[in-house]
Amino acid sequence: MTTPVTSLSADRIAKLEAVLDRQEILDTLTRFSRAMDRFDRDLFLSAFHTDATIAAGSFVGGPVELYDWSTAMHEQGQKATHHNLLNHTCDIDGDTAHTETYYLFAARNLDDSNWIAGGRYIDRLERRDGQWRIALRTNAIEWSGMVPSMEIPFADVPGIHDNGAPSRSTSDPSYTRPLTNVREPNIPS
């Protein structure tokens, strides 16, 4: 038997609102990561307030300039990138939240070498007009290294990309709605 929302205590409602805020904040951070890997400008900008300040590596500036700078850097250096989000803490005080989110960055470079790096995004988010977005970001890069290269698994399988090829754009299969399968059944022996 479920408890009707109207019978929840004020304490439970406050906790539920905090969980919803935390999820919206994490969704904001995830939009940034997905947008970086897919070169999706609109999605990227939706993670930041227009007057946000970002300090990342040698870059210090706003979201539009960050998008232009970082996509140019990634286009010149990598074929593919993955901005993975890991441990996440979130302190919410009204319409302001401070977060620390560990990340693992992995890239396939143009020369087919692989680069990985780890660090933390340290963010101040603000809720304005009901929307949580990043107002200030600093990037604590803590380690970096190269990983030996190998062939990408299954690259030579006929029809492997019939459902869509990975792409650093909105033509990536993750944008396909509805997602469908056009590949023929095949159970390798």
Rank of each mutant, 00 (worst) to 15 (best):
M1N: 08
T2L: 00
T2W: 00
T2N: 06
T3F: 00
V5P: 03
A10D: 13
A10L: 06
I13K: 02
E17F: 07
E17T: 14
E17Q: 11
V19C: 07
L20Q: 11
D21Q: 06
D21K: 01
Q23M: 14
E24N: 13
E24D: 11
I25Q: 07
I25T: 01
L26C: 03
D27H: 14
D27A: 07
D27T: 04
T28L: 01
L29F: 03
T30A: 12
T30L: 11
R31E: 02
R34V: 13
A35D: 01
M36N: 05
D37S: 12
D37Q: 08
F39I: 04
F39A: 15
F39N: 13
D40I: 02
R41V: 00
D42P: 01
L43W: 05
L43F: 06
L43K: 12
L45H: 08
A47E: 06
A47C: 11
H49W: 13
H49E: 11
T53Y: 01
I54W: 01
A55N: 07
A55R: 10
G57I: 15
F59I: 07
G61D: 13
G62I: 04
L66D: 02
W69P: 00
S70R: 08
M73R: 13
H74P: 00
H74E: 09
Q76K: 14
Q78M: 09
A80N: 12
A80I: 05
T81D: 04
H82C: 09
L85H: 05
L85E: 02
L86K: 05
N87R: 10
N87P: 04
T89N: 09
C90L: 09
D91H: 14
D91I: 05
D93Y: 03
G94I: 09
D95H: 13
T101A: 13
T101N: 14
Y102C: 06
L104V: 04
F105V: 03
F105N: 10
A106I: 03
A107C: 07
R108G: 03
L110Q: 12
L110D: 05
D111A: 11
D111R: 08
N114D: 05
I116W: 12
G118T: 14
G119W: 01
R120E: 11
D123N: 14
R124D: 07
R124E: 15
L125W: 00
L125Y: 00
E126R: 09
R128Q: 11
D129E: 05
Q131T: 15
I134L: 10
I134M: 05
I134D: 02
L136P: 00
R137L: 00
R137I: 03
R137G: 00
T138S: 12
N139M: 06
N139I: 02
N139S: 14
N139R: 06
A140P: 02
I141S: 06
E142Q: 10
W143A: 05
G145W: 04
D156M: 08
V157R: 15
I160L: 12
H161P: 00
D162I: 07
D162P: 01
D162V: 08
N163W: 04
N163V: 04
N163Y: 04
G164E: 04
A165K: 11
S167K: 10
S169N: 10
S169V: 12
T170C: 02
D172Q: 05
P173K: 04
S174G: 13
Y175L: 05
Y175F: 15
P178M: 09
P178N: 07
L179E: 13
T180Q: 14
R183Y: 02
E184H: 08
E184R: 15
E184A: 13
